[in-house]
């Protein structure tokens, strides 16, 4: 007999019972609707144990890689610890290892955790400031290539947490982080699929991690990275990305500027419009969209209507924190 754990509840499953039925039988109010494995209302995550494959049918790759499953389809074959996908892992302590400016307003922060964090580049962590505010920052590092975790933090005018990071963080400081979180990352399995990566501002943080991760995992298909900013001082990592393109012929980097002054080597226009003009048909592509929430939503619709499948579009909108 198998059992599931949900918060403080331990539930033994009866023969052939689904996780959803067991939770409802215990009087635990989890969301559900179709009970047939389609509507995804009962989406959950296994933090211990592996859900059976049928419970992941139709889910996007990164959800499968994170042990997401549909509770209404899940008849476990081993004990599982399950949670709702919105519930967060407990905070852990991290130590600042390095602080390095990448441009006028982007700072790279290196962090180390006591216990190694298992993450995919492009996921994010939540950082707690001493003032009690929590902000998300994306993981630009690649396990096996970089030591620890690398963040790229853009300083915003009047930004409370980004200001604190830029002004006060120094090597040796400790802080609390939660994670890894998020479903915007590279999964192996389709090594020749063309990849389109579009980001604005520090949206380059997850995208640079995703591009390097894909290359490290041996991705052979084209990888097109478009980075957008209003003016040239918003561009960063240019040398690093040009070197990467020189080393890997399948990788191409296009900086895009939406302002007036366009230096040679940069494309003119809004980043997703430049990308769309270059690649009007995206049928069969995998698309990653990171940064400004409006760009992400517009580019998502653009990519879908241009032929990319819903499950092949990965999003990381940098939504503004409400507190």
């Amino acid at each position: 007999m198998v059992a599931i754990r949900f918060g403080t509840h331990e539930i033994d499953l009866t023969d052939g019972e689904t996780v959803l039925d067991a939770l409802l039988r215990e009087g635990i109010a989890v969301p559900y609707s179709c009970r047939s494995g389609f509507c995804q209302t009962c989406l959950m995550c296994a933090s211990q144990g592996k859900p059976p494959r049928e419970a992941m049918q139709g889910l996007r790759d990164t959800w499968k890689a994170s042990n997401y499953f549909l509770a209404c389809r899940c008849k476990p074959v081993m004990d599982l610890e399950v949670r709702l996908t919105g519930d967060l892992p407990a905070p852990v302590r991290a130590r600042v290892q390095s602080v390095q400016p990448l441009s006028q307003d982007i700072l790279e922060i290196g962090l180390a955790t006591d216990e190694r964090l298992h993450y995919h580049p492009g996921q994010f962590i939540n950082v707690e400031s001493p003032g009690g505010l929590t902000r998300s920052y994306s993981l630009a590092s690649v396990p096996g290539e970089d030591d620890g975790l690398l963040l790229q933090v853009r300083r915003l005018p009047g930004g409370r947490v980004s200001g604190w990071i830029h002004e006060t963080l120094k090597p040796g400081d400790t802080l609390h982080i939660q994670g890894p979180l998020g479903d915007c990352f590279y999964c192996e399995g389709q090594p020749v699929q063309p990849l389109l990566l579009i980001g604005t501002g520090s949206g380059l943080a997850p995208l640079s991690g995703i591009a390097r991760d894909a290359l490290r995992q041996g991705h052979k298909g084209p990888i097109h990275l478009f980075h957008g900013s209003r003016s040239r001082d918003g561009l960063y990592l240019q040398d690093c990305l040009k070197r990467l393109a020189a080393r890997h012929p399948q990788f191409q980097y296009t900086p895009c500027l939406s302002g007036q002054d366009i230096p040679p080597g940069c494309a003119r226009g809004r980043v997703h419009e430049v990308a769309q003009a270059r690649f009007p048909c995206l049928s069969g592509w995998r698309v990653f969209l990171c940064g400004h929430p409006d760009m992400v939503q517009q580019a998502r619709m653009m990519a879908f209507m241009a032929g990319a499948a819903i499950n092949d579009i990965y999003l990381d909108p940098f939504n503004v924190a409400l507190t």
Binding site: C34, S36, F38, C39, Q40, T41, G58, R300, M301, I310
Partner: peptide
Amino acid sequence: MDRQAAKQKAFLTMAFGGPH
């Protein structure tokens, strides 16, 4: 869009005579 697409899958499954 993700949720909406999932609901459309529910719709198509019904229309295709699938289990629901």
